[in-house]
């Protein structure tokens, strides 16, 4: 089986995988990092978002082999003793209910705020096109992202 090696949350990891192994499978099944989740099979729900070299990407649509040498950040890698400001804002604004879509939502939101430090409500809603949430109605997610953008210095 082909070998793959990448950096996940600052640690070098490697493994032998079938070529057809998706990045999300590599994370969940090889590395047992189950915070990144699979909610659909058509690349739409966004529960599997991770950062690849800083860009949010759906890890269900990337082969593990494509991530050779890349820097991956998952939900598990955000908190550094304390919650990341985006995580903290999600908690403060009740932007999660069941928590299943949350890791992807947080990762996607961080990418947004990195690109656009002071997004408007409309810009946030547009950005979240690739992240589905069935619990919250999005209202509090939008509020949380606005608050996090402020906290992150936007």
């Amino acid at each position: 089986m082909p070998a793959v090696s990448m950096t996940v949350n600052g640690k070098t990891v490697s493994g032998d995988v079938e070529a057809r192994t998706l990045l999300v499978q590599f994370l969940r099944e090889n590395l047992r990092m189950t915070g990144t989740r699979v909610g659909c099979d058509t690349a739409q729900c966004g529960a599997c978002c991770v950062l690849i070299d800083g860009d949010s990407v759906k890890s269900c649509s990337v082969l593990a082999l494509q991530a050779e040498g890349a820097e991956i950040t998952t939900i598990e890698g955000l908190a550094d003793g304390e919650l990341h400001p985006m995580q903290d804002a999600f908690r403060e604004h009740h932007a999660l209910q069941c928590g299943f879509c949350t890791p992807g939502m947080v990762i996607s939101a961080i990418d947004l705020v990195t690109r656009n430090p002071d997004p408007s409500e409309d810009q946030i809603r547009e950005w979240l096109e690739g992240n589905l949430c069935r619990c919250t109605g999005y209202h509090n997610i939008v509020k949380a992202i606005q608050a996090a953008a402020q906290a992150m210095g936007g």
């Binding site: 099944e29 189950t34 990144t36 598990e76 919650l83 999600f90 403060e92 009740h94 928590g99």
Partner: peptide, 21 residues
């Protein structure tokens, strides 16, 4: 009150059925 359960969900430490091996 801010939710107790959020700490695990926000850090990818939730424990959903498919997370169990």
């Amino acid at each position: 009150v801010r939710r107790t359960e959020d700490n695990r969900f926000l850090q990818g430490r939730g424990n959903f059925t498919d997370d169990i091996n």
